[in-house]
C-alpha cells in the first residue's frame, strides 16, 4: 500500500469519526447524507480517494445505520431500547439469560436512570449497582410474580434453620406427614401395582364359557380364598 493511499485512509478515518459524532449528537434525528458530508468536508478537502474511503467507512460503521433508499444516516445504539416497555420486551424475546450493561443502554436511552429505578421497584428487573455512587451498572430480567413479602424476622428465622443430611430431611418430612419430592412417584406406583394384581385373578378353570353374558358377573365381589 502506498503512503499516499495510507494518508487518504487516515484522513477519511478522521472525517468518518467526525461524521459519527455528528450523527450521534443529533440522535434520534435522521440526517441526510449530503448534510453530514457538508458538515465534515470543506470544498477544498474533497479529494476523490478520501471521499471513497469516507463513504465506505461511514456506510460500514456498526454504530451507524445507512438507509440506501432515501440516502440518510441515523445513529444505531447498541440496544434498540428507548422505553421501559421495549426493555421488558427485549428480555422476554430472548430465551437465553441476558445482562445489559447500563453504559451501553444509555447510548441510545440517555435518561434511563429514573425508569430503571421504577422498574426495579416493580420487580420487573434487578439491578447491579456501582459500589461508589449506587448508580446502576448492569441490569437483569426479573418477574414480579416471583416475589413474596416475607417479614424480615421470618427470613432471619429461616436462615438460622440448619439443614440436616438429605436422608434425614426425607425422614423428617415423612414423620411430619409431608411428601418428600421424590416419593410422589413411588406412592402412585405402589397403588397401581395392587390394582393390577386384583384384576387378573382367575384361579379355577371355567367350564361354562358358553353361558358368558347370560349370568351376572359377581367375580369382583367373590369372597377371598376361593
Amino acid at each position: 500500500m502506498s503512503t499516499e493511499r495510507t494518508q487518504s485512509i487516515t484522513k477519511a478515518r478522521a472525517k468518518s469519526v467526525q461524521a459519527k459524532e455528528r450523527i450521534k449528537d443529533k440522535f434520534p434525528a435522521v440526517l441526510k447524507w449530503d448534510d453530514v458530508l457538508n458538515y465534515c468536508f470543506s470544498a477544498i478537502e474533497r479529494h476523490k480517494d478520501v471521499l471513497f474511503y469516507y463513504t465506505q467507512l461511514v456506510k460500514k460503521d456498526s454504530e451507524v445505520t445507512y438507509n440506501e433508499k432515501d440516502n440518510t444516516l441515523v445513529y444505531k445504539p447498541p440496544y434498540p431500547i428507548r422505553t421501559p416497555e421495549q426493555l421488558i420486551e427485549f428480555f422476554q424475546a430472548n430465551t437465553d439469560v441476558q445482562s445489559i450493561e447500563v453504559a451501553k443502554l444509555k447510548k441510545g436511552w440517555p435518561d434511563c436512570d429514573a425508569e430503571i429505578d421504577k422498574l426495579e421497584k416493580e420487580h420487573k428487573i434487578t439491578v447491579m449497582r456501582n459500589k461508589k455512587d449506587g448508580s446502576p451498572r448492569v441490569i437483569f430480567a426479573d418477574d414480579p410474580t416471583l416475589h413474596i413479602n416475607l417479614d424480615e424476622e421470618f427470613v432471619n428465622h429461616w436462615q438460622s434453620i440448619q439443614l440436616p443430611s438429605k436422608d434425614d430431611i426425607i425422614r423428617f418430612l415423612i414423620a411430619s406427614r409431608r411428601t418428600p419430592a421424590g416419593q410422589v412417584a413411588a406412592n402412585t406406583a405402589v397403588v397401581k401395582q395392587k390394582k393390577q394384581a386384583r384384576k387378573n385373578r382367575q384361579s379355577t378353570k371355567q367350564t361354562n364359557k358358553h353361558m358368558h353374558g347370560i349370568f351376572k358377573d359377581y367375580s369382583g365381589i367373590r369372597p377371598k380364598g376361593k
Binding site: 421470618f154 428465622h157 429461616w158 434453620i161 439443614l163 440436616p164 438429605k166 430431611i169 426425607i170 423428617f172 418430612l173 411430619s176 409431608r178 418428600p180 419430592a181 421424590g182
Partner: peptide, 20 residues
Amino acid sequence: NYHEAVDAIKYRIVKLQDKV
C-alpha cells in the same frame, strides 16, 4: 437438584412454622 432443593424448602417451612 430439584428433589433436594424442594425438600430443603419444605423442611425449612415446617421448621419455621413450628418455631413461630
